[in-house]
């Protein structure tokens, strides 16, 4: 009997291999898709109205803004850096149309885009790439909307570089060619006397609304900080003291109809006291 027990033990010796172990992920098999045109040259292809790119352009840049705080909705912004990793004035918004993009496109991740067949347009000075507009007459490129579609054009890379903001002291130094870029303006104050929050969590129709908070720089020039009511920091109070603001630059019309430069923050950490 004891010999048989030994045989039973033998059974246990031949344990199965790990059928479902994960372990460490190996290094990626492929290099990043190289660009054949710099992002800052993309603006030359836009002539004032939506245009379909017919050339096999491949652009690339590093993610500077995503939907992590829900201030950017279903889109990401990528910006190029030069050889010494200094930010350039090349940036574009990609109209992805999916949710929770910040996992796939964290800040700093390299993203390449096969632009052929895509529509290039502009909104508040920011270049946008996407599918053809969903409605006729619209200037907004359509969202990719589906992962399978996005994968045809957008190729997440393996390299990364945290893009530093271009620093300004005066609004007057902004230019429209910088729209879409990550900027920081220092020493600015809220123009309003009353206490306000960054966004409107519950507006006139009980729904979240976008708010435009006017700030002034030391020279007294105004600009707006635009925040969606859905942003996770929308309910936080705007500081009254002098701060620095980082975000994506654009130029457009506020809710009161004034045209001015606007900055959209990525999250509450973009306010530096």
């Amino acid at each position: 009997m004891f010999r048989n027990l030994l045989l039973l033990i033998l059974l246990c010796v031949f344990t199965g291999c790990g059928y479902n172990e994960f372990g460490e992920l190996s290094a990626p098999a492929r290099d990043d898709l190289p660009m054949n045109i710099e992002l800052k040259e993309l603006r030359a292809h836009y002539k004032g109205e939506p245009v379909t790119i017919n050339a096999p352009l491949v652009i690339g840049g590093y993610v500077t803004a995503n939907d992590r705080s829900d201030n950017f909705y279903r889109t990401i912004i990528i910006q190029d850096v030069d050889d010494v990793s200094e930010p350039t004035h090349g940036a574009v918004e990609l109209r992805i149309g999916l949710y929770s993009l910040y996992h796939l496109f964290p800040e700093g991740r390299y993203v390449a885009v096969r632009a052929e067949g895509l529509t290039l347009s502009d909104y508040n000075g920011i270049l946008q790439l996407g599918l053809e507009p969903a409605e006729s007459g619209s200037t907004l490129p359509g969202y990719f909307g589906y992962r399978a579609v996005m994968d045809q054009y957008v190729v997440p890379g393996t390299s990364s570089c945290v893009v530093e903001p271009i620093v300004f002291e005066h609004v007057g130094n902004f230019s429209e060619t910088m729209c879409g870029c990550l900027v920081r303006i220092t020493s600015v104050r809220l123009a309003a006397d009353t206490s306000v929050t960054w966004g409107i969590e519950s507006g006139w129709n009980n729904k979240p609304q976008t708010a435009y908070r006017i700030f002034i720089d030391r020279s007294g020039t105004s600009f707006a900080v635009v925040t969606s009511g859905y942003a996770d920091f929308a309910g936080e109070t705007v500081p009254r003291e002098e701060v620095s603001i980082t975000g994506i630059l654009s130029y457009g019309r506020t809710d009161t109809g004034r045209e001015m430069y606007m900055i959209k923050m990525r999250d509450i950490r973009d306010v530096i006291r």
């Binding site: 599918l131 909307g145 589906y146 992962r147 399978a148 579609v149 045809q152």
Partner: peptide
């Protein structure tokens, strides 16, 4: 993620 959900014909074909 399924093509039946895609209301965009191009997307549906691709998926």
């Amino acid at each position: 993620n399924m093509p039946s959900y895609a209301d965009n014909p191009t997307a549906a074909t691709l998926i």
